[in-house]
Amino acid sequence: MKFFNRPTQQKLRKALRSSSHRMMWSIRAAYRALSLISLIEDAAVRKARLLKAVAHTKQRQARCWAERHPHMLLAAFPLWGSPQSFPVAPQASLKKRFWSGLALMSVATGPWAVAYAQFQSMFADMNEAKAVAEVGQVAFEQMTTILELSTAVIPLVGYVFIALIAAVAMGIHRLEIAATQMDLKAKPRVGYRFHVVQISSIALYLGLLAQCLSWSINHRSFAEPLFRWVTSTPLVLLPAILFLLLRRRLDRNRREVRVKLYGNTRRALFASLLSTSLSVGVLLLLMRYLR
């Protein structure tokens, strides 16, 4: 939208004919000033449109890249995850959202399935002789076959677990928004997909940790010398160095997410206290009724 309209030549001539000599120079100076301002504004508008087009292009490219590389999206979510990329009502179709969510949950549950298979192989090798002596070779092979087939159930359990936890997180977030804004009809700024990505990211990091642990136990002969060599070198400080380097970015992203979700830091603090109180209350109720 333009605020400075450049005067036409006809309006300028009409104003000059009906003015004095000094007024003519003033009108010409004003005309040149308005022309210069109009040119500057045209250039600014073109630049703003170009920047807007570039931003939309980069956002579309980032969305396409995230869909093609869901593992990188989950890995980078704690550093660059923004609620602005997860609106309440995305324009994508339900089928596309389902497959993208399934891909994210598959990436998150993959390390857990690998860790389960490694632990299963380790315990089978450790107890093979005892099991064969008790139930026989045929029964032991049938049992190991059933356990191998049960590995495919781990991703399904992970899908259900992530979906349920994300649903609970979405419900708590809606309650936080209603409580912080004092309005029961207040709408949250993020949709269900944001919580799915958040829970999937946590599950991915925990699954990678479980996979490293299972691999270390299952390959002790190779892992123990490697760990001794790492602990005897400065490489043992690498995790601490990475944490110190990324801690500032993590804290900044966490503050930005809180502000974007709740509006300000006071509302974010109140929402955090509310969710903590609810979690503690649920745990106390479970401890009371499970006795």
Score class of each variant (00 low, 15 high):
residue 155 P to C: 03
residue 178 A to T: 07
residue 151 T to S: 14
residue 194 F to Y: 09
residue 202 I to K: 03
residue 166 A to P: 01
residue 168 V to H: 13
residue 162 I to H: 05
residue 203 A to I: 08
residue 194 F to I: 02
residue 210 A to W: 14
residue 198 Q to R: 13
residue 165 I to L: 12
residue 195 H to Q: 13
residue 207 G to C: 12
residue 211 Q to N: 15
residue 171 G to P: 00
residue 200 S to P: 03
residue 161 F to S: 10
residue 199 I to K: 06
residue 173 H to L: 01
residue 151 T to C: 09
residue 150 S to M: 10
residue 155 P to S: 04
residue 152 A to E: 08
residue 155 P to F: 04
residue 200 S to E: 04
residue 150 S to D: 11
residue 164 L to F: 04
residue 169 A to I: 02
residue 210 A to T: 13
residue 159 Y to P: 03
residue 162 I to A: 07
residue 207 G to E: 08
residue 165 I to C: 09
residue 167 A to L: 10
residue 160 V to E: 12
residue 178 A to C: 10
residue 150 S to W: 05
residue 183 D to L: 08
residue 194 F to S: 02
residue 155 P to H: 01
residue 196 V to Y: 00
residue 180 T to K: 13
residue 188 P to R: 01
residue 162 I to M: 09
residue 202 I to F: 03
residue 157 V to G: 08
residue 187 K to N: 08
residue 163 A to S: 12
residue 200 S to I: 04
residue 176 E to L: 07
residue 194 F to E: 01
residue 171 G to T: 05
residue 164 L to S: 02
residue 213 L to H: 14
residue 171 G to L: 07
residue 202 I to C: 07
residue 164 L to G: 01
residue 152 A to V: 13
residue 197 V to S: 09
residue 192 Y to Q: 03
residue 205 Y to G: 12
residue 194 F to P: 01
residue 186 A to I: 12
residue 214 S to E: 03
residue 167 A to Y: 07
residue 202 I to S: 08
residue 184 L to I: 09
residue 154 I to F: 00
residue 204 L to H: 07
residue 154 I to D: 02
residue 179 A to M: 14
residue 192 Y to S: 02
residue 173 H to R: 05
residue 166 A to L: 11
residue 168 V to Q: 13
residue 198 Q to G: 07
residue 148 E to H: 12
residue 213 L to T: 15
residue 203 A to S: 09
residue 190 V to C: 08
residue 151 T to N: 12
residue 188 P to A: 00
residue 160 V to H: 07
residue 165 I to Y: 06
residue 196 V to W: 00
residue 163 A to H: 08
residue 160 V to Q: 10
residue 195 H to V: 02
residue 185 K to L: 14
residue 176 E to W: 05
residue 184 L to W: 09
residue 211 Q to K: 15
residue 149 L to R: 14
residue 211 Q to F: 11
residue 196 V to H: 00
residue 177 I to H: 02
residue 183 D to T: 06
residue 194 F to A: 04
residue 181 Q to T: 15
residue 153 V to S: 10
residue 176 E to G: 11
residue 200 S to L: 05
residue 192 Y to K: 04
residue 212 C to N: 06
residue 157 V to C: 12
residue 204 L to F: 12
residue 182 M to C: 11
residue 180 T to A: 15
residue 207 G to M: 14
residue 151 T to D: 05
residue 197 V to H: 07
residue 166 A to S: 12
residue 186 A to F: 14
residue 192 Y to P: 00
residue 214 S to C: 06
residue 153 V to Q: 06
residue 188 P to N: 03
residue 158 G to N: 05
residue 203 A to W: 06
residue 154 I to W: 00
residue 175 L to S: 09
residue 152 A to P: 05
residue 189 R to P: 11
residue 204 L to S: 04
residue 178 A to M: 10
residue 214 S to P: 05
residue 167 A to I: 01
residue 179 A to Q: 10
residue 194 F to D: 00
residue 186 A to K: 15
residue 190 V to K: 07
residue 177 I to S: 04
residue 204 L to R: 05
residue 192 Y to C: 00
residue 175 L to G: 14
residue 208 L to F: 15
residue 212 C to V: 13
residue 164 L to R: 00
residue 207 G to T: 11
residue 181 Q to G: 13
residue 164 L to A: 03
residue 212 C to H: 10
residue 186 A to W: 13
residue 152 A to I: 09
residue 203 A to C: 10
residue 151 T to Q: 08
residue 169 A to H: 04
residue 194 F to V: 05
residue 155 P to M: 04
residue 213 L to Y: 14
residue 174 R to F: 01
residue 185 K to T: 15
residue 206 L to I: 10
residue 204 L to K: 04
residue 190 V to I: 12
